[in-house]
Nucleic acid binder design. Sequence first.
DNA 1: TTCCATTATGGAGCGCCGTTCCAGTCCTGG
DNA 2: CCAGGACTGGAACGGCGCTCCATAATGGAA
Lengths: 236, 236
Amino acid sequence: MATRTGRSQRRTEALSRERIVEAAVELLDTAGEGGLTFRALTERLATGHGAIYWHVANKGELLAAATDAVIAAALAVEPAGSAGSTGSADSTPQERVRAVASGLFDTIDEHPWVAAQLTASSLQVTTPRIFESVGRQVRALGVPEGSWFTAASVLVEYILGAAAQNAANARALGPDANRAEFLDAVSNAWEELDPDDYPFTRAVAEQLRAHDDREQFLAGIDLVLAGITALHPPRG
Amino acid sequence: MATRTGRSQRRTEALSRERIVEAAVELLDTAGEGGLTFRALTERLATGHGAIYWHVANKGELLAAATDAVIAAALAVEPAGSAGSTGSADSTPQERVRAVASGLFDTIDEHPWVAAQLTASSLQVTTPRIFESVGRQVRALGVPEGSWFTAASVLVEYILGAAAQNAANARALGPDANRAEFLDAVSNAWEELDPDDYPFTRAVAEQLRAHDDREQFLAGIDLVLAGITALHPPRG
DNA sequence: TTCCATTATGGAGCGCCGTTCCAGTCCTGG
DNA sequence: CCAGGACTGGAACGGCGCTCCATAATGGAA
């Protein structure tokens, strides 16, 4: 299966699965999810369809590979330590959860197409990476083993859900346009909703206008962490 | 713009935006996200493309309308009350959050395509409905007004994130196949991961195999609620 | 060195998609 | 009764993912 061990390049510059995935990520970043096309890829790599299909089975596999590459890079930034569990260093588990979550949030903010892909293939290849990074900190928090799966799942689901929605907003806006204007428009729309049907939404319209996405996201992380601590006190 | 007030039907049975959306939902349910095609819709409604495009601008608008219809139905099941805030009745705010969340979870489980659509158009038309339903209970929980937006956002983001991931698993599985077999296969895959790289994931593989999606989801809701209560004690 | 199976390439083309265009039909108000 | 707006449906366009296949480059065997 496409071993290619140590083979030197052929013609111009050997086409490899790596180069294809790299080009795919660039295309997705610059042109959005709809921008990844085998035709565009063909042009960018100066080759034909068939050559690409030799390395990659189909578009789905290419998307999965691109997602995995981006997420792996995001999680590699962490110190990660060796096989160690607690990570000895000078940070609390809470801080380390925030760090992992922040990294994922920023990465998905930079590559909005990742969000759709991640939620579309949940228990597949990429998710264990995320699950493991988050789960180690859950364990370090002192959660009893019987609740590990639940606590880690909630964290991962919240992280991916919040990041996905944030990315969707960024995507709906376009890469350049003015975020403040967009928030202002949505906030105004909320304020003009029917007062009988939407009292709460109208009441928080102002908070929507003023909020900061990242801050909001980290506040959510803290809230989930507080829930974990409340249900599983550190020294039970 | 397409008033059609009280017009009696024309030929066979007047084509209406309502009938189109209804057919679209049925197609999405039976054939998946890829099953919604203007050609399939044409055939099912015994008409031509142009007729559909007269009522609906494009596929995106049709998807949004279908999503809105399904979500509106899901939230309408709630007692909803009048404009009232607390909902007087015999249930606690926590129980009412669980009820709203359950309804959304079940609906997204029944119509998996809704998840992708919801996260793809976050601050658009449909979301305020959900936000309002959840937000009213947040208010009833006694959360201080300055934290309403944060608390409601976290709940909505978790609900949509978790439901989306659950729906993705259901979709990856196909409508018929065996859930237990699928979980077993993933669990086995997790157990065969590298012990050095994935100690936590391996440790919870057994919990993954045994878990119940709905129970897991509600445990997450409880965890988030516990976090809200911890950070905003009922009587501050 | 010669030869050939393997590995790798890229172009032609198929079927399907969303969407546009437009000629035509139906219905209603004047 | 007829003009004109409301509505229909078929033809056609460009672009998509993907398959097929003739061919070129390659490295090991002879």
